[in-house]
Design a protein around this nucleic acid. Structure first.
Length: 847
RNA sequence: GGGGCUAUAGCUCAGUUGGCUAGAGCGCAGCAUUCACAUUGCUGAGGCCCAUGGUUCGAGUCCAUGUAGCCCCACCA
């Protein structure tokens, strides 16, 4: 089919993706070394955003490149139920309908969310296809698939048996709006302006009081002690005495603990073990009771004094301060900035609340991970991320994996109704109650933290433990992800991978940064700077988006989304398209004729470019690899080789070159390259996808160098014409077979009116290499030409001087590598010669 | 308090064992124009590579200190 004048992506993209799918193009090849990677499962609750476009582009570039290297590539797609995240999204949907999660039973809610997610997944799959991701859909995995759930249970069970799982009453990070606890790393800390209140607690016996300092006066109702530093002289004699807790009249002891900093606040600290992590620890050390005053609804609980019952934390704080002040207990206040934990979704202040939860003892797991990383079993790109992860692993904290939400994998644990300490592992989670040995056991209503199941992704998607794919493709060659989930996901995958499979789950981690807007600001709905990748594809095409997002991209750094780069990508696709159009027009016999200088030159370039391209791709430097082929295709092929082909065509070679560059460009622009491949039927009945890089005949170096001479001459004449502002110039050259052979090319590409053999009567002689060339630019233009010459002479003279001083430096000659010194010599000789020619030229001009 | 990153042309960014006469894309200026492509071609102007010191024959690149910005972890009564 004849190609249209410009490339129109939307006409071809869907067709091309279907073509790939119908030919099973993304199934791993039977032969070839395995190369495996897994898509980070996409959250099945919304649309793809720019981050997805980036991550899938990088992964797909790798996958397609590896196929072109003859590897057997497995690239697995997947989706995550994204427990809490999805429930939040769903609740927003409910809110639109004027409902809330409390209107449904747990089972109903689960079912509704399941349907919602199911619809979403179909939509997401379409979007993943639009991005061109060359994934093997037959391996698609969803995180609620039985295989994934089974693995989560197996891991949990084996950790349980090995004593790595424990259940305990701890202070957990609780969001009172969402009604669930979070892991420590999920809490977002923000600096906030607050007040440090000084409250006076009277001694029970005798006069006097102790003034404590607190940012959270409302928790005083749950105080069970006041602590001071044992070395603090001010309080030493009070240790062991008791205080009367204002507003409650409860009697609490004064205890000594070295945790207390005597220089901070008043040096006396109220201790609320049920509402502050540090107080909890102190409480454990001193065996203090834990009095809960804030409930899971974020309100003061019923057994607090009457006026405060049921108040929110903030209301309670105000009421208590007022009451304390009215009764003379308030001793003052000072402003301070402190950091406060918030729910990362809704921003509600996280309350530390006492709760029984399942925890994983992480230290033994982290230890293994640290050892494996130290042993160099995983390569980090960029390297600095390894240090960051190590730092995290070395300071790891236990992981709370219980979530109080409906949407997730139920925790397979049951408790004896008559013995709260008797917990058993059982997978019959579809039943609320089970009977064992005449005992009734009740199911834990909680579900797993989503990251617990997704941390098994690398092997669960491969069919661990006994599938062929697991044998062949594990560990993964590459895990590509965003650096924002380095701890939450990458770190945990390494730890669980080692625990479950005894191997690191992947050999290499590539971490990309976040996509920001053009000014480096985070994309957010409230700022209104969010760009939808699907709309970009609608406008410019999938390849254009991919190129735009990948060019200038480096691992580990944030990057701005710049639409100009996408337009650049679109233009590049069109360039490819038009090269193909040229080839299509000129298609004739495919026989290779004798190679011209231009042929030698382009073959020589191809060889160099392929080497460099592979080297860059093999070291995951995509942006540079793209730049390499971009310039080869645009500058070398289009601007020189095609132009030369218009004068002297080698139709067989031009076609071979087109094939070769389509393969090179395919990882970056899969759609347009495959479209061209299909339309030109370059190799009938075949797909470009999966095709290996081709070897072309080697170009002769001398011939290539000679063509470079022609290029140089053309460039020189062009710049001269522009500098002197002349047109209708005739070019003459002295006897030279090289110039004679390329006379029409020179004429065409410089725009001179004629190129003839002669001795240049009436023209200026320009210095170029060993060839004599004259241009009759006319006397009136000679001044401009002289000016240009002067500039060149000045520049070259500077260069000569530089090289001379370098070579006069005995230390340089002695210590620099010999080939470098040699090179400097050669450069100096060339520069001197050039300078002499330029001066001669100026001399002649003067006459 | 601990860990990490960033600073290069007007803008967005490349620049991996130190050899740079520092690059790209966009933007800007000038010129061109049916015949693969205006999603074009040609020519050009733009830079004390944050600062200071050090190592070296040689530093954008390595080291130290500082300045400015950013991210993460911990703590903050």
């Amino acid at each position: 089919m004849k190609l249209s004048k410009s490339y129109q992506p939307h006409k071809h993209e869907p067709v091309i993706y279907s073509l790939w799918e119908s030919h099973n193009a993304f199934r791993p090849a039977r032969k070839g070394r395995p190369y495996s990677l897994v898509m980070p499962p996409v959250n099945a609750n919304g649309n793809l955003h720019m981050g997805h476009a980036l991550t899938f582009s990088i992964q797909d570039i790798v996958a397609r490149y590896q196929r072109s290297q003859g590897k057997s590539v497995l690239f697995i797609p997947g989706a995550d139920h994204a427990g809490f995240e999805t429930q939040v999204v769903f609740e927003r949907e409910l809110a639109k309908a004027g409902k809330s999660r409390f209107d449904y039973s747990r089972e109903e809610l689960y079912k509704n969310i399941f349907n919602f997610v199911d619809q979403n997944r179909t939509n997401l799959h379409t979007q993943i296809r639009r991005l061109g991701a060359s994934v093997d859909w037959t391996c698609y995995t969803f995180s609620l698939d039985p295989t994934v759930v089974r693995q989560a249970y197996a891991t949990f069970h084996s950790m349980w048996r090995q004593g790595l799982i424990y259940r305990g009453e701890r202070l957990v990070n609780f969001c009172t709006y969402h009604g669930t606890a979070f892991a420590d790393i999920e809490v977002v800390h923000k600096e906030e302006q607050g007040k440090l209140w000084h409250i006076s607690y009277p001694l029970t016996e005798g006069k006097g009081s102790v003034v404590v300092a607190t940012t959270r006066p409302e928790t005083m109702l749950g105080d069970t002690a006041v602590a001071v530093n044992p070395l603090d002289k001010r309080y030493q004699k009070l240790i062991g005495k008791t205080l009367r807790l204002p507003l409650t009249n409860r009697e609490i002891p004064i205890i000594a603990d070295s945790y207390i900093d005597p220089d901070y606040g008043t040096g006396a600290v109220k201790i609320t073990p049920a509402h502050d992590p540090n107080d909890f620890n102190i409480g454990e050390r001193h065996d203090l009771p834990k009095v809960t005053v804030i409930g899971f609804d974020g309100r003061l609980v019923h057994d607090v004094p009457e006026p405060f019952k049921g108040l929110t934390v903030e209301e309670g704080r105000e009421a208590i301060i007022n009451t304390l002040s009215d009764n003379g207990y308030l001793a003052g206040s000072e402003d301070l900035v402190h950091s406060v934990g918030h729910c990362y979704k809704c921003g509600t202040v996280i309350e530390p609340l006492l709760m029984e939860q399942w925890f994983i003892d992480m230290k033994p797991l982290a230890k293994q991970a640290i050892a494996a990383i130290r042993a160099g079993e995983i390569e980090f790109i960029p390297e600095a991320k390894q240090e960051q992860l190590m730092n995290y692993l070395e300071n790891i904290r236990d992981w709370n994996i219980s979530r109080q939400i409906a949407w997730g994998i139920p925790i397979p644990a049951f408790v004896n109704e008559n013995d709260p300490g008797d917990w058993i592992y059982d997978e019959r989670v579809d039943q609320e109650v089970i009977e064992i040995n005449n005992n009734t056991y009740r199911r834990d209503p909680d579900v797993f933290d989503t990251w617990f199941s997704s941390s098994s992704w690398p092997y669960v998607t491969l069919g661990f433990p006994d599938s062929d794919y697991y044998q062949r493709f594990y560990p993964l060659e590459l895990m590509e992800s965003g650096f924002d989930i380095l701890y939450q996901w990458i770190g945990r995958m390494i730890m669980l991978g080692l625990f479950v499979t005894k191997h690191v789950p992947f050999k290499r981690v590539y971490l990309h940064g976040m996509i920001t807007d053009e000014h480096g600001r985070k994309m957010s709905k409230s700022v209104g700077n969010v760009i939808n990748p699907m709309e970009v594809i609608d406008t410019y095409g999938s390849d254009a988006l991919r190129i735009g997002i990948i060019s200038g991209q480096t691992p580990g750094n944030n990057q701005s989304y710049v639409s100009a780069k996408v337009i650049g990508g679109r233009n590049f696709c069109n360039k490819l398209w038009n090269i193909a159009r040229f080839v299509q027009d000129k298609a004739g016999s495919d026989q290779l004729v004798e190679l011209s200088l231009a042929d030698h030159w382009i073959l020589n370039r191809y060889d160099m470019v392929v080497r460099s391209y592979c080297k860059l791709m093999d070291s995951y430097r995509f942006s540079e690899a793209y730049e390499e082929i971009y310039h080869f295709i645009w500058d070398d092929i289009a601007d020189w080789y095609i132009e030369a082909s218009k004068v002297c065509l080698n139709s067989g070679l031009v076609k071979q070159l087109l094939e070769a560059i389509l393969i090179l460009a395919h990882p970056f622009a899969p759609f347009v390259t495959e479209t061209i491949w299909q339309n030109l039927a370059l190799v009938p009945d075949s797909l470009l996808s999966g095709r290996q890089l081709v070897d072309l005949p080697k170009g002769n170096k001398q011939s290539a160098a000679n063509f470079n001479t022609i290029i140089g001459l053309i460039n020189l004449v062009r710049s001269m014409l522009v500098a002197t502002g002349t047109k209708d110039v005739r070019l003459t050259y002295s006897n030279s077979s090289l110039l004679k052979e390329h006379a029409s090319l020179i004429k065409q590409l410089t725009g001179v009116s004629s190129v003839t053999l002669g001795s240049g009567e009436g023209g200026v002689e320009i210095a170029y290499s060993k060839h004599k060339v004259w241009l009759d630019i006319g006397h009136d233009r000679e001044a401009a030409y002289k000016q240009q010459l002067d500039n060149q002479i000045q520049q070259e003279a500077r260069r000569v001087m530089q090289l001379e001083t370098r070579l006069k430096n005995s230390q340089y000659v002695k210590r620099a590598p010999a080939d470098l010194v040699e090179q400097s010599h050669a450069q100096l000789v060339a520069s001197r010669q050039n300078l002499r020619q330029l001066k001669d030229e100026k001399q002649r001009l003067a006459h």
